[in-house]
Simulated scan of single mutants.
Amino acid sequence: MALHNRVSAAELKKKLALETFKRVTVSFYQYAKIEDPQAFRDQLYASLFQLNVFGRIYVAHEGINAQISVPENNFDAFRDTLYAISFLHGIRLNVAVDDDGKSFFVLKIKVREKIVADGIDDPTFDMANRGQYVDAKHFNELTDDPDTVIVDMRNHYEFEVGHFEGAIEVPSDTFRDQLPMAVDMLKDQKDKNIIMYCTGGIRCEKASAYMLHNGFKNVFHLEGGIIEYTNKARQQGLPLKFKGKNFVFDDRLGERISEDIISQCHQCGAPCDTHTNCLNDGCHLLFIQCESCARQYEGCCSDACKEVNRLPEEERASLRKGVEKGLMFNKSRRRRK
């Protein structure tokens, strides 16, 4: 069998829309030593393809990072497939909080240098020396202490639409930039309890190890990230300390955690937390857009992109050549109109 998809995106999306069964969006990761990432990748692709699993998975010598969509009727077989792999046996599976089952439409498994791009090149850095896990109950207890520092290890556009009460933002577009920034921002608070969190746990776990590597003492990281925290807090009837929406890196672009809307439309300033990509294929800027501005700008980030998007496809294709796209709205950039 082919170990890569060969069907067009349009056809795959059409096929997904016609599915009559329910899908479950799941994420998981594991730091582990993988001797031959390519061979592991190929074997995993063959197994998951047979189970009709969609999603995005990164494999590296340091482990695996996955965000996927599994047919509900194949979920037990999927879990058994993972648990049959020694370093994934019993692994926690983070089930999405707010799921429409349409998060992915194709399976992509890629071999990367690292499962999280961190910029760390210090050979003495060791992921085995990482912070202490905290579950939802312990997290709430620790954060009731005013001397506890809560650190958000996600990107600025994730923090903007939702975060824990009192959390510190490390304002950056990339995790590799955040790590040294976090060390510098907290250098005078090394003796405090520091809790780091992220979406599913993978970034804050590495961040906790990096903080310990740089001389911090009482470092914790939220087990399973925001996703696991929300599920457990709801199951156990705990106060939910996360406000707003949890940004996710799939077609949903977010899952509702609380009804609070803490961000604004990037075009008109109205309360809004709906992320979208500019419909101009030569731009694809990720930004927040309310329904009114979506109508006014026809799903685009600016009048200029709206006009380009009205052009015939041949002209648009010509304009796209050599253009860098896939950017994100940044506080340092001016609002585009």
Rank of each mutant, 00 (worst) to 15 (best):
M196V: 13
D188R: 09
L285C: 04
N74V: 12
A2Y: 03
I120D: 00
D121L: 05
H275G: 00
G200W: 15
L51Y: 01
I115R: 02
D126I: 10
T199Q: 02
L179I: 08
S263Q: 04
I120Y: 04
L253M: 14
V151S: 02
R56C: 00
M328I: 11
C278K: 06
L142R: 08
V95I: 14
E160G: 00
S318V: 15
K192Q: 15
N52V: 14
M328E: 13
V59S: 08
A209M: 07
L48N: 01
K321Y: 11
A207V: 03
H284L: 15
G131F: 10
R154G: 05
M196N: 03
Q43G: 02
C204F: 11
L286Y: 13
M1K: 06
Q289S: 04
Y229G: 01
P271Q: 12
L88C: 12
I195T: 05
P271N: 09
D147T: 14
A32Q: 10
E259L: 03
K306P: 05
N129L: 10
I85A: 00
F104I: 07
N74C: 04
Q236I: 03
A317R: 15
A209S: 12
A17C: 00
D36V: 07
H266G: 09
G63C: 05
R316H: 08
G119C: 13
F104Y: 07
G225Q: 01
N5Y: 03
D188V: 09
D121W: 08
L286D: 05
L16T: 07
D42N: 09
K13I: 05
R234H: 08
F28K: 00
F104W: 08
D144V: 07
D118P: 00
N155I: 06
Q264E: 15
V248G: 08
F139K: 03
R203F: 05
A84Q: 11
I115H: 03
L179A: 09
G254C: 01
E205M: 03
F78P: 05
C301K: 09
A17W: 01
D76H: 08
T230N: 10
C305S: 07
I202D: 11
H138S: 05
G244F: 07
N73Q: 14
V183G: 12
L279K: 14
D126M: 04
N94R: 12
A182R: 04
L311G: 04
M127W: 11
L286M: 15
V95M: 12
T174F: 14
I150F: 09
L327R: 14
G131S: 11
